[in-house]
Design a protein around this nucleic acid. Structure first.
Lengths: 324, 324
DNA sequence: TCGTTCTATGAATATTTCTTCAATACTTGG
DNA sequence: CCAAGTATTGAAGAAATATTCATAGAACGA
């Protein structure tokens, strides 16, 4: 056995003894014939490798109450809220953990043979926290262009990652998220290969999408996916959400902006009626999330508690406005 | 909110912050506004409630090598070996953890709508370590009598536990594991209800069974499921394994003992060809496990490393004998 | 072969987690 | 309403875990 293998094996064994067997590192050290410090390092190594997964099989009552509320008011099949954990190293880990589990279950079930995947940091983190699984017959397809306008690869693309995680086949859409113009979009859409990929995407059994907020620091701006001119146009309109590349107002209606003729990916109307899982996190996504929910296409909502809190109060306002 | 609910909610939140958020108990205490000692107690509480699950997504190379060997030599679909963790509080926890995960996956998949369940400590521990899941449409059926000869309930019966874990319907076989005599067995089998239950059991998509070793301290003797006379008869024969209530020798053939006309549950020939998952642990089960494997009905084997080691050397012997 | 650099190790130490203990609050039976 | 028992609490101390540091050993280039 090679040294690296042997070290790894030892690390895994130490991890088992520590987490499953609940032995102390001292006991493990004695049993394995190494120093306690080494045991600690072995376990730390195994953790960094992502070999060890924790799972808390419950959520605080406050979260569950909000889940119920959202599910009722917005007719959701499922709603899960990751508890707020204060300022931690990785702010996505909570939502990623809960969404990862959900997605894992969804993909295990034999209902899904083809899954359409969107983009975003939260989605990326979600897939990172999923346990290994084998489901080679699954099709993983991109539902939106996954390049920047400069045609460089988008670092938040998750198809690749999910594909290799489950040993499945992946289909990218090698076009930008947003075309430069309506004409350029039509040019992309005229391509046979793009048409085929979009048709394939449309035929998915389930979709997993992120929700984009519109702020100056949102990744659309930061990553130069849209120009400042386009952004100003958005600001003039009532747009508060980028949902699947379309810009909508808080009622979930499309806004009359030129950008709405530039997205290359699937339209949210293309997925209406299918299983649509939305994953989002951060209180600043509240308006956007409400807007996306109001399109009525989302069936499953996975968010963190901060967003949930904010969303809850926004929904209160929405109701009192409607009542008036 | 009631006090108990609130405490629980707090415990769950503390658990999230500790395990998912990786905060120290001190940080959590500050954030939650309680003393560090209380945080520790909250987390300990959540652990005792079984709300926190650990998972090590890998096994040492030594285990995987043995898994491969067994899968090849005995034509298994799956083989998993739980790493040895030395003397720990609960010696079943390792195998239970790995078998629980396996069973969880098996039941998630839509292949299984009815599952036949055997008996035993290892099986009991396995079900205990399974995560909560909802699958109310699943049928859980007992494949063997689950009472003692004195018709008291058997503490190792797992149907009840699995049933309530997944919110499914459970079917017991309200007869002893072993009848007192062939005649008594026939009397039980003549009962309409028993026939129906056995027919239902036979129709299962998958079976999960334990493997019984024959020692003086085995639970057959200890729990007075057989008499000393019967046991002596077994000793005269070459029997080394109780597999689904039938006594077989190391080649997997039925032994000519009167006890083999007394089991009330399904015969292993009834399940041949179906998915048969065997769970066993402990080096003293090695002969019995080899015997059970040699019947050729087992498709999936879940054992611990001690048993695997012993089984491996027994298989070496078996081969050299056959070669002769 | 030698020297340089980088990595891996265990002892020492700092930090965190867990347990004990004394004190207080909360039940419960009279 | 009171008293005795029981459960809960935080502080303090014990145990375990994590980090630092000095050193030894391997890997690489000359």
């Amino acid at each position: 056995m090679k040294t690296a293998d042997w070290t790894n094996s030892l690390a895994i064994r130490a991890a088992w003894m520590s987490f499953i067997g609940r032995s102390t590192q001292g006991e493990i050290a004695k049993r394995l014939g190494v120093s306690p410090a080494k045991v600690h390092r072995l376990i730390a190594h195994a953790q960094k490798e992502g070999l060890i997964k924790f799972q808390v099989e419950a959520r605080p009552a406050e979260c569950m109450a909000l889940e119920q509320k959202f599910a009722d008011k917005k007719a959701l099949t499922n709603c899960f809220i990751a508890p707020d954990m204060g300022p931690v190293e990785d702010p996505f880990y909570g939502i990623a953990s809960i969404a990862g589990q959900f997605l894992h279950r969804l993909l295990q079930s034999d209902e899904v043979t083809r899954i359409g995947i969107g983009m975003g940091r939260t989605l990326k983190a979600t897939v990172s926290s999923m346990p290994l699984m084998q489901k080679p017959e699954l099709n993983v397809v991109s539902i939106s262009g996954s390049l920047t306008r400069r045609l460089s690869a988008n670092p938040y693309d998750v198809v690749q990652q999910l594909q290799s995680l489950i040993g499945a086949e992946g289909f990218y859409l090698p076009v930008p998220y947003m075309a430069e113009s309506k004409e350029q979009r039509d040019m992309f859409l005229a391509q046979r290969s793009v048409q085929e990929l979009l048709a394939r995407a449309r035929g998915s059994d389930a979709f997993v999408v992120g929700i984009g907020a519109l702020h100056w620091d949102s990744h659309l701006i930061q990553r130069r996916l849209i120009t400042e001119v386009e952004h100003n146009e958005l600001k003039e309109s009532a747009a508060c959400c980028d949902f699947m590349g379309r810009f909508i107002d808080k009622t979930g209606a499309l806004c009359p902006v030129s950008l709405n003729d530039k997205a290359v990916g699937l339209h949210f109307e293309d997925v209406r009626g299918a299983r649509v899982v939305a994953v989002a996190s951060g209180a600043d996504k509240a308006e956007a999330t409400l807007a996306a929910l109001n399109t009525g296409v989302i069936t499953d909502l996975l968010i963190d508690e901060q967003l949930a809190q904010e969303l809850s109060s926004l929904m209160e306002n929405e109701e009192s406005e409607t009542a008036r």
